[in-house]
Design a protein around this nucleic acid. Structure first.
Lengths: 225, 225, 225, 225
DNA sequence: TATGAATGAGGATTCATTCAT
DNA sequence: CATGAATGAATCCTCATTCAT
């Protein structure tokens, strides 16, 4: 018993310390960007010694990547059920949008960091060496979105558009809006009422949305052939 | 005559050298990001000595900013006439999209750099201290887009949507698409045929596009009140 | 007990290291001057890595200034009691002179540095930005000397001379002599016998010394009116 | 004839340019110190190109040294006749003091530079590599002063003091006073009336002046033996 | 000679990482 | 595990000097 408890307590302690470090690092990275934050700064913010961080993470890069991965996993776990549920595609997209907003408002620091480093397909451009789970998660998410759109088109719920275009476009536009909203509102506590958005998506809007994007992609595709 | 030429030659030489440095720096910044490029690297790439760069730019930051500003000015000068022309709003937006693609394909390195640092409203987060012309240009562009959308809505060309939502959304989506296209195609020479896109925009697509975005914004606005 | 010692040891170690750096820097600065010493040099001399110095001092300038301030404080603490004691003014000046010599001989490197940077009113010319405590100390010392002279004159111990002239003159002359003596002697161990000087000052010499200086000052003052 | 004139004009032109550079450099050196002035700065101040300076001086160091030497020669040529004249020693010292003041006021920039770099015997400490004429001049001057004092003592004009003490002391004190006067007065135009000082020196003041200094030196000498 | 752009070694400073306690 | 001082490679920037025109 004692053997089970003691290590367990240790474990929990360790986990707590780890997450304190992660929190501090996340806050700083989100605010100032990877390169403008030093390990010493993180240590101070986390109220640990410099060396302690290295008991949890092999390097600054690792720390960053692991944070990103955690965030990414969180996001995915929240969004995945929505996109893979049993509802129709229209509903899925609507749910995705609502969820995106909620997630953003609930974890603004974390997500801000995530979005920032993963601005669309640029992720691996800007952060070439940080191609951990985060990048994969992005790809998974995109894949799911594409599938939803493809299905929706097949069923005639959406106009015939290229999913490979709509998916990133939706993502990008969402981020842009969510961010600009965040900037206007600043710490508003309105997050709970997001529910009201739901009905809006059934005015049939989605129907022909994003076709613009489709055209663009189509055009550039045609050029290639 | 000789007197006229001599100083001019110096000037021209200097200008050429300057742009060689700018080119090298742009290439590297675009590829690896501001913090992952050293002045030495730029010097080597530009085939000059380290110190020479400082005869043209006061600091690494200045170099970066000036590059950004130049690119921004270029973009603006290409896009502005389109958005401020005498054509109807639908045409303007269509033109803007086409121009964006063309610009991107013609100056991929430069633009890639610009877009990267100016991804929507994030610009001032990630690059707080680089708020020269580039940031202003972004704002100007957004303002122009908003006006076009507002006018289009008033004339009934577009559905009633909030310009403050559509403008950043269009921008973001465009970038996402343009980039993903760029990644697939890589230096394709198909740029000239972009003309074909034109007709697409008159299938009436724009009519109700982006309403989705509007809903999102509307919802989050409502929450505030 | 152990708890008390452990942090204290760290503290003491740190202090020891700090003073090793200070010593090395002082030696080098005194020998070669501020601009002719590099941080690397200091690091090597102190047998530390370059970065270590920056754990103690924010910059080369700070290092220099802090050294100066320390020295200045030391000097002041030694000289002040003499000039502010209960003895008569003649005695005070005599004591000041003796103390100056002794101080110089005991801390030759440190003082050499201090004197060098504070050569009379030139201090702020040559070392404009190093105006920390050191400059203040110089002013304090001068003020005290002036008071002593003024008092001495009032009591008839000294001829009527302008204290504002004698003070800097005494200071400068003392330095000159002390330095030239130092150069001849080079690390002589005769410091202990300085006591013998005492009697000399009672041959009444001080009585009309420095009047020359007074004349000069008087003359230039008169010119102004 | 033409041959004589043409090179002569060239010569004069060259000389003029040289002295323009010297003037500029002197101003800057005097104001900011050797290490805080760049050749580019000097070039700009002199209104020449950087390279031009190197047509006149081999290096920055050379430039500095040559300036110093010129100034030193000037000072010496003004002071030497006074100290070597046919007058009695008392007069010589008085003349020396008066001349010092006049020189200082007439060439404040130049002299300020000279004095600054030659503050007593420190000269070769602080500026080890600048041991050109300037240092020699200083020694010559000191030697002459010592002779004058020695002679004065022998003739009973001065009390018996060690010339090796009085000479540097007088020098140092003079500078201190002259500088502090300069600081109070700032660009006063009273220089011409210095003549009035003369009489002051015959109040017999010099008689026992500087004995203090003598004592000090004596004491430290005795310690050595 | 005059020019001024180019050079590149040198110097101050930062910061990820290590390691003895 | 926690600590935090020590490390030193890496980086930005300066500036004396050269040299082609």
């Amino acid at each position: 018993m004692a053997e089970k408890t003691k290590p367990s307590r240790r474990q929990r302690e360790r986990q707590r310390h780890r997450s304190e470090i992660v929190d501090a690092a996340m806050r700083l990275f989100a605010e100032k960007g990877f390169h403008n934050v030093s390990m010493q700064e993180i240590a101070v913010e986390a109220e640990f010694a410099t060396g302690t961080i290295y008991n949890f993470f092999d390097s600054k890069e690792t720390l960053y990547r692991e944070i990103m991965d955690e965030v990414a996993d969180n996001v995915l776990s929240l969004v995945k059920p929505i996109l893979e549920g049993e509802t129709d595609e229209r509903e899925k997209i609507a749910g995705f949008i609502r969820a995106s907003i909620r997630i953003f408002q609930e974890n603004s620091a974390a997500i801000r960091l995530f979005l920032r480093a993963n601005q669309g397909p640029l992720a691996h451009v800007s952060t070439a060496h940080f191609s951990g789970t985060a990048a994969k998660v992005h790809d998974i998410l995109q894949a799911m979105l594409k599938q939803v759109f493809a299905a929706g088109v097949r069923k005639g719920l959406f106009r015939p558009i290229d999913p490979c275009v709509v998916a990133p476009a939706l993502d990008a536009a969402l981020r842009a809006i969510v961010f600009s909203a965040a900037e206007d509102v600043q710490d508003s506590a309105l997050e709970e009422k997001v529910a009201g958005i739901e009905e809006l998506f059934f005015r049939g809007i989605l129907h022909d949305a994003w076709n613009l994007a489709a055209c663009v992609k189509a055009a550039s595709d045609r050029e290639e052939s």
